Simulated assay, not measured.
Amino acid sequence: MGLKESLAKLSMINIKRGEVLFKEGVPSNGAMFFLFEGQLDIYKQIEGKHTKLRSILPGEFFGEMAIINNSPRAASIVVVSETAKLGIINRTTFVQMSQESPEFLFLLLKKVIERLYETDGKIRAIKRKQDEDSAIAKVTPNASQPDSDGNGEESSGQVPLETFTNDAQSIGE
């Protein structure tokens, strides 16, 4: 059986814009996902703010660390499209897909390595910018200039922590 046939057998869920699939740091349920339709954004807490790292587009796997070592979720995932259609891959399904479709493991490993490099670079760039901004602020009083919405903060893809409240219902958990 090939990868397409394996994906066609997955349990499906549909979620709506603004819903949090899972939150960074919460225990995982041992499931990873495949996005069939829609768009999701990945947020990681960096120095007190949830910062957007990247988007997940149709055809991508994510949440693989939950399958491999059942670790807490490494980031928060939020639906940004009107709706999103996801396939759920539990550990049993993962093992079966791995045995039936070696291309699945190869694609997954390739993606994980690419994401590792991409995420590391993004986090380093964000921290470098924060360090630069901090250095400028120390040298120049009132260095913060209002941005287009006049609040004095730059739009950096950061979201206040309140957006990810502890009482938010996580999906698939």
Rank of each mutant, 00 (worst) to 15 (best):
M1D: 15
E5T: 12
S6P: 11
S6Y: 12
L7W: 02
L7M: 00
A8L: 10
L10K: 01
L10Q: 02
M12Q: 14
N14V: 15
R17I: 04
G18C: 08
G18Y: 05
G18N: 11
L21D: 06
K23R: 13
E24I: 00
E24K: 01
P27H: 05
P27Y: 01
S28R: 05
N29I: 04
N29G: 12
G30T: 04
A31S: 14
F33W: 13
F34S: 01
G38I: 00
Q39R: 13
L40Q: 01
I42E: 03
Y43T: 01
Y43R: 02
I46F: 02
E47N: 13
E47F: 10
G48Y: 01
H50K: 11
T51A: 07
T51Y: 08
K52D: 03
P58A: 02
E60S: 13
F61Y: 12
F61N: 12
F62S: 03
E64D: 07
M65W: 03
M65Y: 03
I67D: 00
I68A: 11
N69T: 08
N69P: 11
R73C: 06
A75D: 04
I77A: 06
I77N: 03
V80H: 06
V80S: 08
S81K: 00
E82P: 15
T83M: 07
K85W: 08
L86A: 03
I88Q: 05
I89N: 04
I89K: 01
N90G: 07
R91Q: 14
R91S: 15
V95I: 11
V95T: 10
V95F: 08
Q96R: 10
S98V: 03
E100T: 14
E100K: 15
S101A: 13
P102F: 01
P102T: 04
F104S: 00
F104I: 01
L105N: 11
F106E: 12
L107H: 10
L108K: 00
L108Y: 00
L108C: 00
L109T: 10
K110I: 03
K111L: 04
I113W: 09
R115N: 12
R115M: 08
Y117M: 08
Y117A: 10
E118C: 12
I123T: 08
R124P: 06
R124K: 14
A125R: 11
R128H: 09
K129Y: 12
K129A: 15
Q130I: 09
Q130H: 09
Q130M: 13
D131A: 13
E132W: 09
E132R: 14
E132K: 11
S134Q: 14
A135K: 07
V139M: 15
T140L: 15
P141I: 06
N142Q: 07
A143M: 04
S144V: 13
P146N: 05
P146L: 02
D147L: 04
G150K: 15
G150E: 15
G150T: 11
N151K: 08
N151V: 06
G152W: 03
E154N: 12
E154H: 09
S155F: 14
G157I: 00
P160K: 05
E162R: 08
F164N: 05
F164L: 09
F164H: 07
T165P: 14
T165N: 12
D167P: 10
Q169I: 14
G172I: 05
